[in-house]
Design a protein around this nucleic acid. Structure first.
Lengths: 120, 120
DNA sequence: TTGACGCATGCCAATATAGGCATATGATGT
DNA sequence: ACATCATATGCCTATATTGGCATGCGTCAA
């Protein structure tokens, strides 16, 4: 089987560099497709496709403005990601020496009584 | 052309749910492949492959321990992600009232000139 | 050396992209 | 209705994956 659909969640949506660039640009406010395409050096169809993915996972919203369609950021979907990654903060803040020490502790504990700990 | 290699960066590595689960499990300490595979309900080869990706982007490290190979978390690679996503924090923390107000505006406009906008 | 055990790899199949291009759809103005 | 500008889509190709299975490789014990 193939990879889970990109369209399925924000994690996948932001795995693509150009989509991240789009989101970054949109922090500056709403922009029409052509603008984004030009600024990011991609073709208009490409931009539209990426925007579609972003729209499907809810990271951007659209608004018709005359002939144009203005895309705007809706960052709420990024929050879960920030929280998930944040769950690892203490692991990258700890110096590696301490980390190794921590690892040793766990091994000890496991030998005394095998845990299964938290998943997710 | 196809999507950028998963193996290229942490963003892609954590786009895969099972790899996220592996990382989460590893917060509890080093574990051998078979352990992880069992706990996550996947085959051993599957686990090994995911671990390889995680190793290639530097999110886990390995250590030989007799017949086993213990995988341990190296969360440093998650920090850039946390920071990138954190750059959007102010956009999702803006009061919901303001956001809702904005949404109302959009609806108004739409009624004045019927669009079809977002689906999904 | 021979087995057994724990893992890593290779190979194949099915599928989801991303890119490039042409073209359909929509909205506007004349 | 028609021409035009702004986008969205469809189609095709090449490639990256993930899953399943069989198998190779390294380590340890007899």
């Amino acid at each position: 089987m193939a990879r889970a659909a990109t369209t399925s969640d924000a994690f996948n949506a932001i795995a693509e560099p150009q989509r991240r660039e789009i989101l970054t640009l949109l922090r500056g406010g709403e922009r029409p497709v052509t603008d984004l395409a030009r600024d990011l050096g991609m073709t208009q169809p490409q931009a539209s496709k990426h925007l579609r993915v972003l729209r499907e996972v809810g990271l951007v919203r659209v608004r018709g403005a005359g002939k144009q369609r203005l895309y705007g950021l809706d960052a709420r979907g990024l929050r879960p990601i920030h929280e998930w990654v944040g769950g690892f903060e203490r692991f990258w803040s700890e110096s590696f020496d301490r980390l190794d020490a921590y690892v040793q502790e766990l091994k000890q504990e496991r030998q005394e009584g095998p845990h299964d700990d938290d998943d997710q």
